[in-house]
């Protein structure tokens, strides 16, 4: 497209020290990364922290980007790895460690107060039933439309393991659907 710098061009400029180019590159992908972080963490402040961590990691690793795959795929790999680290770290923290403004204001659910739509809230609740490994596979498969081969490569696992994690996620969802129907 005329007048729009390619990712590669912006990366080259950022590597040469152009903060403007970096800012443009971040602007191009921030929504995607933020929404992914929001689905993974389910908290606005945590999603913001995670997004900043992801972009900082991308910036630090930019000299290692070899242009072998597309930039979005490379970014996604870093984002997923960071999300996994983040969730592992969170898993070791007491639940009180994340206090949202909504909670301080006494809202029923953090999502409701985040201005999420009803459907996003439902999706968020559905994802909350999954463990971090299952959530990552669901994220890559259904929200980022990766194939099982890509998912396996990104996570450093076999394609079968990726499928198994998805099946366990389905089993969880089936259970919650059964409960919902019973009610």
């Amino acid at each position: 497209m005329i007048g729009v710098d390619s990712d590669e061009k912006l990366i080259a400029k950022a590597l040469a020290g152009s903060q403007r180019a970096w800012s443009k590159l971040v602007g191009r992908y921030e929504s995607r990364v933020y929404n992914q972080a929001l689905r993974m963490t389910r908290h606005r402040a945590d999603a913001m922290d995670l997004m900043q961590e992801i972009f900082l990691a991308v910036y630090r690793n930019l000299p290692n980007y070899r242009h072998e795959g597309s930039f979005p795929a490379w970014l996604s790999r870093i984002a997923i790895n960071r999300s996994i680290d983040y969730q592992r770290h969170r898993g070791r923290q007491p639940e009180q460690a994340t206090i949202d403004v909504a909670e301080l204001l006494g809202e029923d659910s953090p999502q409701d107060a985040l201005g999420l739509s009803r459907r996003n809230t439902e999706i968020s609740r559905m994802l909350a039933n999954l463990n971090p490994d299952q959530r990552v596979v669901v994220e890559l498969k259904f929200f980022q439309q990766f194939t099982f081969e890509d998912i396996a490569q990104q996570l450093g696992i076999s394609s079968n393991t990726a499928k198994n994690r998805l099946y366990s996620a389905i089993a969880h969802l089936q259970k919650s659907m059964e409960i919902k129907n019973a009610l």
Partner: peptide, 17 residues
């Protein structure tokens, strides 16, 4: 769920932080 997710706007932040 993957299809229906409505992207949430990114809050203001410093891209150069």
């Amino acid at each position: 769920a993957g299809r229906d997710w409505e992207d949430v706007a990114v809050p203001q932040w410093s891209r150069l932080a």
